[in-house]
Design a binder for these strands. Structure first.
Length: 357
DNA sequence: AATTCGGGGCC
DNA sequence: GGCCCAGAATT
């Protein structure tokens, strides 16, 4: 059963006046979106804020203007350019998807065809289908979940309410301008129907909002309680040899999979030792918070005189700290040779350093 | 249905 | 310090 259309009509009218200007977005009525740019932005935006994505999107489209360019890129370079954005399985899937699409010749133009590609799930397949191909697919992201939960005053907590939300969202989706409509819902959620204090006073849908009439908008959607994050501990070893530094590429599977890193201990039960025999000294502790646990990582350093058991030596001239994920950048910040803490200084006393707060 | 995946910005 | 973010893949 499809909605009468009042809500989508009101929303599209609002979007025509207040749409956000974004690097991957084509203004309404100004031509058709490039599926490659839509796809790239959607993957980058998975669980990631618009502000964080912007610079990465500009960089990627500059380096690789088409899906064929990206398909031809080296895995290591893509991983290096993705470094810092998080959820690195996205980067590995990005390359795999680009190569599959390049082999096909172009992006599939249906939700089902897109859904079969690596890294493209229920949300992203619907979003690309709607935005790039103007198909009336039901696009449900975190913004839509919030907007719909409030419009219909859905009290069932997430994620149990997902099917119900999808049904309401499906009924709202218009046959005309579904791509603009999908982006309008997300703009509304991002700028007006916000999580904590929604701006109902200027919302174009306030007259249709059941939660607003009940005065409970700010309390929806309800969510299941979250588990507490455990604190794990580990060590990372930043070894130097002449003008080289010891690094490794982490296994594709698991945390920080496929990223450039310094050799580290396990921090989930496994117990790897130092990557080389050396006199290691402690530089401090870095704390890093992941999605499901926090980590205190002791940063060790040494000058290496023997061949390392694992990892590889790369010259400091070629070493690119920007290719490191966030956690390893913190370790680098402690271990990095600086004028204040030179590597080879006989004058430097071996005073213990205080862990950063 | 629950867990595993990052990182930053904002209250 | 917790919450949220244009979620997907795996179990």
């Amino acid at each position: 059963m499809r909605d009468s259309g009042l809500i989508s009509t009101e929303l599209l009218a609002w979007y025509d006046r207040h749409a956000r200007v974004l690097p991957w977005r084509v203004p309404a009525g100004k031509g058709q979106a490039d599926p490659y740019r839509v796809w790239l932005s959607e993957v980058m935006l998975q669980q990631t804020t618009v502000a964080a994505v912007k610079q990465y999107f500009e960089r990627f489209t500059q380096l690789w203007p088409t899906v064929h360019d990206l398909a031809a890129a080296a895995d290591d370079q893509v991983m290096a350019e993705w470094a810092g954005l998080g959820y690195y399985a996205r980067a590995r899937n990005l390359v795999a998807c680009a190569r599959a699409v390049s082999a096909l010749g172009s992006f599939p133009d249906t939700r089902e065809g897109l859904r079969s590609l690596p890294g493209i799930g229920p949300y992203t397949s619907a979003a690309i289908s709607a935005i790039a191909f103007d198909r009336p697919e039901t696009v449900v992201d975190g913004n839509v979940e919030r907007v719909v939960s409030r419009l219909f005053a859905i009290e069932t907590p997430l994620p149990v309410s997902k099917p119900e939300i999808h049904d309401f969202a499906s009924a709202l989706t218009p046959l005309d301008r579904p791509g603009d409509y999908a982006q309008a819902m997300m703009d509304l959620g991002a700028t007006i129907c916000t999580p904590r204090s929604p701006a109902c006073g200027i919302c174009p849908l306030s007259a249709y909002c059941e939660a607003r009439s009940q005065g409970i908008a700010a309390q929806l959607p309800r969510k299941a309680a979250k588990k507490a994050k455990p604190l794990r501990k580990g060590a990372v070893w930043v070894g130097f040899s002449d003008s080289s530094i010891l690094v490794e590429t982490r296994p594709d599977k698991g945390l920080l999979g496929g990223t450039l890193a310094f050799p580290s201990s396990g921090w989930d039960g496994s117990d790897l030792g130092p990557p080389a025999e050396a006199v290691w000294r402690e530089l401090g502790v870095v704390r890093h918070v992941f999605t499901h646990f926090a980590l205190d990582l002791v940063v060790m350093t040494a000058d290496l005189n023997e061949a390392p058991r694992r990892g590889r030596l790369v010259s400091l001239a070629e070493f690119q700290p920007t290719a490191l994920p966030g956690l390893m950048r913190k370790a680098w910040a402690l271990a990095r040779p600086t004028p204040a803490r030179p590597r080879h200084s006989v004058a430097m006393a071996s005073q213990p350093q205080t862990p950063d707060g």
